[in-house]
Structure formats: C-alpha cells, structure tokens
C-alpha cells in the first residue's frame, strides 16, 4: 500500500476520530456517572483535591478530545465526499441515502455537544475553578449551568453514538 493511498489516510483519520471521541465521551461519562454523583459523599475538607487537581486535568483532555473529534470527523466526511450532503441530512442529495441522513444527524448532535463543551461548559467551569474571577453567587450559577450542559451532552451522546454506528455498519 502506497503512503499516498487515499484509503490509508481515510482510515488513519477515522482512527483519529474514534480515539479522540473515546477520550471526549469517556471523560463526559466520567463526570456524569462518577465524579458529580460522588462529590456530595466526599468529606468537605477533601473536595478541593477534586476541584483543584483532578477536575482541571480531566477538563483538559475532555475539551481537546472534543476539538480533535470534531476536526477529524469533518476531515473524514470531506474525504469521503459526503460532508455537505450530511450537513443537509441528505435532503436534496443527488443520491439520497439513509446512511447520509444517519451520519448527518450524528454530526449535528456531535457539533451541538462540541459547542456546549467549548462555549458553555468551559467558561462556567473556569468560574468554578477560579480561573475566571467570580462572586460566590456567580460560582453557584456557573456550577449549575455547566452541570446542566454536561447532562444535556450525556443525553445527546446516546443517540449521537447510535447514528455514528448506524452509518458505519448499516450494510
């Protein structure tokens, strides 16, 4: 196989998309299934260890996982020639296909989730962690907003993954 072989690069980008996606959704589920439900059970004096040491590290891999997943995904869709048709959910495509609609719905759900990470969760988490100055009331509001956006993403991740797997393995 030549190094310039299109399929080799396409497969390489797909691998990058999936490995970044696991990094992203793995952390999302860690926050929602493990960290957040456990926090109230942790003695008050130990909670700063989570907020000051574990949370910033986890958020680093979480947000960059999201960025690389989106980037690799868009490149992959472009390389495979269905980027525009998928964005339009296959509507008006020259050869409409259920796979295009499926990957399109998955792409839109993933993009909404990526937006939530970078423009809702992170700015609010920065207030919670003290990176951005905020009053105690603002910190409480930020914690609630970030938590809700994180729950929205957990909810959307379930149909999003269905669409991704559907599109890849329908035939």
């Amino acid at each position: 196989m030549e190094l310039s072989d299109f399929n080799w690069w396409s497969q390489f980008i797909r691998w990058g998309h999936i490995i970044s996606g696991i990094m992203w959704i793995g952390h999302l589920w860690y926050f929602n299934f493990t960290q957040t439900p456990t926090m109230p059970k942790i003695p008050t004096e130990l909670r700063p260890a989570v907020v000051r040491f574990i949370l910033p590290e986890a958020l680093f891999w979480f947000r960059w996982g999201a960025m690389f997943t989106l980037g690799f995904g868009l490149i992959l869709a472009y390389m495979n020639g269905y980027l525009i048709d998928a964005i339009k959910l296959g509507i008006g495509a020259p050869s409409p296909h259920t796979k295009t609609t499926a990957i399109g719905i998955g792409m839109w759900l993933g993009t909404i989730m990526w937006f939530n990470v970078w423009f809702i969760i992170m700015p609010n988490q920065n207030k919670v962690m003290g990176v951005t100055p905020a009053t105690p009331d603002e910190v409480n509001a930020a914690r609630r907003t970030a938590g809700l956006a994180s729950r929205v993403n957990t909810m959307l991740s379930i149909p999003m993954l269905y669409c991704m797997v559907f599109a890849a393995h329908y035939y």
């Binding site: 929602n32 299934f33 439900p37 259920t98 609609t101 499926a102 719905i105 809700l148 729950r151 929205v152 957990t154 909810m155 959307l156 991740s157 379930i158 149909p159 269905y162 669409c163 559907f166």
Partner: peptide, 30 residues
Amino acid sequence: MEKLLGSLAGTVIAGFVLTVVVAVILHAIH
C-alpha cells in the same frame, strides 16, 4: 427539562427515548 436532567437516570432514559425517535425516523425514510 431541568427536572428531567437533574437526575442521572432521567438523563439516560431521555437519551434512550431520543435514540428510539431517531431510529424510527431512519426506519421511516429508508
């Protein structure tokens, strides 16, 4: 919405319901 997503179980159930909705749409247009 906030009440539903306030619980982890509610979040997961909502995710499964949305998945069924998507699956039905994809089945209908096939």
